[in-house]
C-alpha cells in the first residue's frame, strides 16, 4: 500500500471520527445531512458484500467493518437518539436522495466489470458514493452557522477523495495492468463536487472567518 492510499484512508477515518465526536459528545447533528449519511450506509453495505467471501488483509477487513459500523451508528443517532434527533435540521435537508439511488443502480447494471451480483453491487456503490455528498453540500449552503466540526468533517471527506486520485496515479505507474475505469471516472466526478466547498473552506481558513457557502 502506498502513502497516498494510507493517507486517504486515514483522512476518511478522521472524517468519521470528527462526525461521531460531534454527535456523541456535543449530542448535536446540526448541519449534518441524514440523507448523505443514509446514502453512505447503503454505499458501504453494497460494496462490502465481499467481506466474508474474499479476504484481502486484516487492515482491509477492519477498515470495512469500521466504515460499516460507523455509518449505521451515525444514521441510528440521527434517527433514534432522543437528544441528537431533535438537533437534526430536517427542514433544510430536503434533497430527494431516493431519486439518485435508482439511476445509480441502473448504471451499475449497465456499466460494471463483470455481470455478477457482487460486481453490479460494487459498481452501484461506486456510482452512489460519487453523488452521496450532494445532500450534505446542499444543506451546508442553507446553513447560516456552519460549525467547525461539520466543516472539518466535509473537508476531511473531500481530502480522502483527492488522496485516492493521487493513489491511482501512483498505482497506474507502479503496478502493471492496474486499470479501474469505473472507480477512476466516478472518483474524479466525486472529487470535483468538492471543488466549490474547498475554495470557500480555504478562503475562510486564510481570512480566519467563519465558513459560509453562498447559495
Amino acid at each position: 500500500m502506498n502513502l497516498f492510499r494510507l493517507a486517504g484512508d486515514m483522512t476518511h477515518l478522521v472524517s468519521v471520527v470528527v462526525l461521531l465526536l460531534k454527535i456523541h459528545t456535543i449530542k448535536s447533528c446540526a448541519g449534518v445531512s441524514l440523507k448523505t449519511q443514509e446514502l453512505y450506509a447503503l454505499v458501504f453495505a453494497a460494496r462490502y458484500l465481499d467481506l466474508f467471501v474474499h479476504f484481502v488483509s486484516l487492515y482491509n477487513t477492519v477498515m470495512k467493518l469500521v466504515f460499516l459500523a460507523s455509518s449505521f451508528t451515525i444514521v441510528w443517532y440521527m434517527r433514534r437518539h432522543k437528544i441528537v434527533r431533535r438537533t437534526y435540521d430536517k427542514e433544510h435537508d430536503t434533497f430527494r436522495h431516493h431519486f439518485i439511488v435508482l439511476p445509480c443502480l441502473v448504471l451499475g447494471l449497465l456499466l460494471n466489470e463483470k455481470f455478477t451480483f457482487r460486481e453490479v453491487m460494487w459498481a452501484f456503490s461506486i456510482y452512489l458514493e460519487a453523488v452521496a455528498i450532494l445532500p450534505q453540500l446542499v444543506l451546508l449552503q442553507r446553513t447560516r452557522n456552519i460549525d467547525n466540526l461539520t466543516a472539518q468533517y466535509v473537508f476531511f471527506l473531500g481530502a480522502y477523495r483527492v488522496l485516492y486520485i493521487f493513489n491511482w496515479i501512483y498505482r497506474y505507474f507502479t503496478e502493471p495492468h492496474f486499470v479501474h475505469w469505473i472507480s477512476w471516472i466516478a472518483g474524479i466526478v466525486q472529487t470535483l463536487l468538492y471543488g466549490d466547498f474547498f475554495y470557500y473552506y480555504i478562503l475562510s481558513w486564510k481570512n480566519n472567518v467563519k465558513l459560509e457557502l453562498p447559495a
Binding site: D9, D50, V56, E113, K114, E119, H180, S183
Partner: peptide
C-alpha cells in the same frame, strides 16, 4: 485474476 479479487481499495 477475477474482477473482485483485484479490488483491494475501500
Amino acid at each position: 485474476k477475477d474482477a473482485s479479487e483485484r479490488k483491494d481499495e475501500l
